[in-house]
Design a protein around this nucleic acid. Structure first.
Lengths: 227, 227
DNA sequence: TGACTGAATTATGAATTCATAATTACGTTT
DNA sequence: AAACGTAATTATGAATTCATAATTCAGTCA
């Protein structure tokens, strides 16, 4: 009788980590904004202790910046940070692709195929919202398919930080079409269980996404006003 | 006048994160052992509040496991975890190698060359302690040389967890010689600034290290007693 | 003797309190 | 009115307190 992880009433601070993380990711707390302990305590109906614990965790994830005696601010996603993050995500996805080819079951591949079809449909009808969701599902499924918790954890950490940039908003038609094409190729490799092939594609897919993003938010690097 | 990060009196909990992390990494707190809040508070002369904050952070780094109402235990490094960790470190090192070739200054390369020589000397005199130190320095220098903070942060996180396994203890003479040879090749690539070459080597170097480690601690996977 | 029950003890999670740093508001001076 | 200095207010870091879950230990009964 294995009762591992049976009852789990999540501890307060864990709950708070979750909820605060969501607030940050979903942009309810804007980058640079300071995080008002008191208000959040009232909002969540908890004391400062667990909330502060949660903030420490969020800080270690890089979602929040702590300044001694000045509390917490939502971390800014600087251009430099993005530039640094994408290559790392890219190699993690590469590895994920390789491992997924080796470790995914036939049923697992089929499930991804389904999601892929849904994504293509969303592309055809130009439904951005559904597209984004399906896209994310596919990437997550591939990461999961790698069956490597460490990889998954670190990928998630990085993905969260990037997602906050909400760069998909300005997805050009060209880039969109290209992305779909890349996904088609990825599915091919996955069906063939071509590990290195899928890895390669996933890496370049991510770097292309990055390039498009940079182009989109660009008014030339380096001339952002200090305010 | 740029006064960014001038005065920084580290906050108590940050200090504690540091010190506790060291205790775990240096094996003063053994895996599986429970972390006694009270004793540590007395030892450090602080109250439970900052110590517990620190534990939450360590938990999010995976060095410690929290069980609700049962406090913290030092995380076990399971075989599965190691198996999952090494490939991730490997691809991060690969990326680091590529970036280091592009971003390191001549002086930076020279510095690494020096450390490399020191390491070889330690190998010749079979001085394990000096060797390990030099080896770690080289890897760290290459990671730093990549000049990508995100990469560095995630690499450090993973390296810490692996280092705890202290697998270098049982380094066979064959593997040791092989490792030196691999490092020689790496230096060559670095001198030539052959980015993909160095990346490739660093990846396989890490995977070889892993293989040797597995061989060393192996009495066949899967038959570790539950105790 | 050995397994079970339940009280006593201890440890933990979370709220509260306290001391101090940071910020704001106000008054003074020029 | 603008700039400075000072007092009041607020927010933060950390210690303390409190309630409760977990553990230990003694006593009971089979």
């Amino acid at each position: 009788m294995n009762l591992t992880k049976s009852i789990n009433r999540p501890t307060l601070h864990e709950e708070l980590v979750e909820r605060l993380r969501n607030l940050v990711v979903e942009d309810a707390l804007k980058p640079g904004e300071k995080v008002p302990e008191k208000d959040l305590c009232e909002a969540f109906g908890v004391s400062r202790t667990p909330l502060r614990e949660a903030l420490k965790v969020l800080a270690s994830e890089g979602l929040v910046v702590l300044q001694a005696n000045r509390g917490a601010r939502v971390a800014q996603v600087t251009r430099e940070e993005l530039e640094n993050t994408f290559p790392v995500i890219a190699v993690l996805e590469q590895l994920a692709g390789e491992l997924a080819c080796q470790n995914l079951s036939g049923a697992g591949i089929a499930r991804i195929e389904k999601r892929h079809d849904a994504m293509v449909k969303a592309f055809i009808s130009r439904d951005r919202k559904v597209y984004f969701k399906a896209n994310q599902d596919i990437h997550n499924a591939l990461i999961e398919g790698a069956q490597n918790e460490i990889l998954e954890a670190h990928h998630r950490m990085l993905a969260v930080r990037v997602r906050r940039a909400r760069f998909m908003v300005n997805l050009s038609d060209e880039r969109w079409a290209q992305a779909i094409q890349e996904h088609e190729q990825m599915m091919e490799k996955l069906r063939d269980r071509d590990a290195t092939g899928l890895g390669q594609l996933m890496k370049t897919h991510m770097m292309n996404k990055y390039a498009a993003h940079i182009r989109a938010l660009d008014p030339a690097p380096g001339d952002m006003a200090e305010s």
